[in-house]
């Protein structure tokens, strides 16, 4: 929709019809406390029936509101990039390690690939994720440079991409809003007018439940979800609703969710996934892994067929550990047998 089309629509189409077509517009009126605006009339006529006192409290008159409504429509309805930025690959060009030694490395990761980041505590795994998040341009402590689709980005493009390119998930993140799972998922889906709300909420919910160890319902409040359930919901939400093509995950191992399935889910949505981890399952579940030492990337290993075949065995070990943990939680006694 061009700016003139928008203006024409606002001038001629009754408010109610515009809201019916683009439900997000209801918010525009709610925010100005004129949610009960006469719906049968086009905006400027409808505004004649609203209390000018209310409008003036917002520092607006009818003309200003009409102008702002057009801007609102242009941003939320006319925008074609609601699908998020498209990128095919991201390249990391090495800078230097903690002691200033050069980090000789240039690695490109493509859409749909998952990369794990491993290394001792304090080696710089989270730092690498931060460099990706801010699209480092030799301006971070590591001197690294990040390219998108092989291109160096100018400032303007980096600014434009900030907050849209990357979705982040870490141990420290929690839900703070007090809504039910259903209300929240609907709210998030509602902020993306391009998707089918009912269908997306349903898929997200089903998927989150299959990742979480213990089931929760759509009526559960977000703030009552366990750590694992929250993490599972965050992953499903990122997979189905976030438009960001890159997902950065910093240590989700303690969450008690089906980690392998979680990563597969994200990768299947054609995202590039980076996971900083100490967990063998996540490390080997990725297509490749970056080894970090003293602040620099010291190696890149492609997960071999042999390693992949070990995954099943590691999963079995992991499941056994999980059983032991569960028994302890339930107040049971651990026997030699349980260790198998």
């Amino acid at each position: 929709m061009s700016d003139t089309d928008t203006l024409y629509m606002v001038l001629t189409v009754p408010v109610g019809e515009i809201i019916a077509k683009y439900p997000v517009c209801q918010n525009f009126f709610t925010n100005l406390r004129i949610e009960n605006i006469e719906r049968g009339l086009p905006l400027h006529q409808a505004l004649e029936k609203t209390d000018p006192e209310t409008l003036s409290e917002f520092g607006l008159d009818r003309h200003a509101i009409q102008r702002e409504f057009c801007d609102f429509l242009n941003v939320f309805v006319g925008r074609s990039d609601a699908a998020g930025p498209e990128i095919a690959g991201i390249t990391i060009i090495g800078g230097h390690g903690k002691a200033g030694e050069p980090e000789n490395c240039r690695v490109t990761i493509n859409r749909g690939e998952t990369i794990s980041i491993v290394g001792p505590t304090g080696s710089g795994k989270s730092r690498l994720l931060a460099d990706i998040e801010c699209l480092a341009n030799c301006d971070t402590p590591t001197g690294r440079q990040i390219l998108l689709d092989g291109q160096n980005l100018d400032d303007e493009r980096r600014i434009e991409l900030q907050g849209r390119l990357v979705a982040q998930l870490s141990q420290n993140m929690n839900f703070v809003i007090d809504l039910t799972v259903d209300d929240f998922l609907r709210m998030h889906a509602g902020s993306r007018h391009s998707i089918n709300i009912d269908e997306t909420v349903e898929r997200c919910f089903v998927c989150a439940n299959s990742l979480a160890g213990e089931a929760f319902s759509l009526d559960t409040r977000l703030t009552q979800l366990s750590g694992g359930q929250s993490r599972a919901l965050m992953i499903a939400d990122t997979a189905f609703m976030s438009t960001s093509p890159i997902v950065l995950i910093d240590e989700i191992e303690n969450a008690g969710i089906d980690r392998r399935q979680a990563i597969e889910l994200l990768a299947s949505r054609d995202k590039i996934v980076f996971i900083s981890t100490h967990d063998p399952l996540l490390a080997l579940g990725a297509d490749r892994r970056l080894i970090i030492k003293n602040g620099g990337i010291s190696g890149i290993i492609t997960t071999s067929e042999e390693e992949k075949s070990c995954l099943t065995e590691i999963e079995r070990l992991d499941a056994r550990l999980f059983q032991i943990r569960k028994k302890l939680r339930n107040g049971e006694i651990i026997s030699r047998n349980a260790l198998g």
Binding site: G163, A167, Q168, L169, S170, N172, M173, N174, F175, V176, I177, F184, M187, H188, S191, S230, M234, D237, T238, M241, S242
Partner: peptide
């Protein structure tokens, strides 16, 4: 304070 809330909340 985006470091302590979920991605979904940041987006909304």
């Amino acid at each position: 304070k985006g470091d302590i809330v979920s991605q979904a909340e940041r987006e909304v």
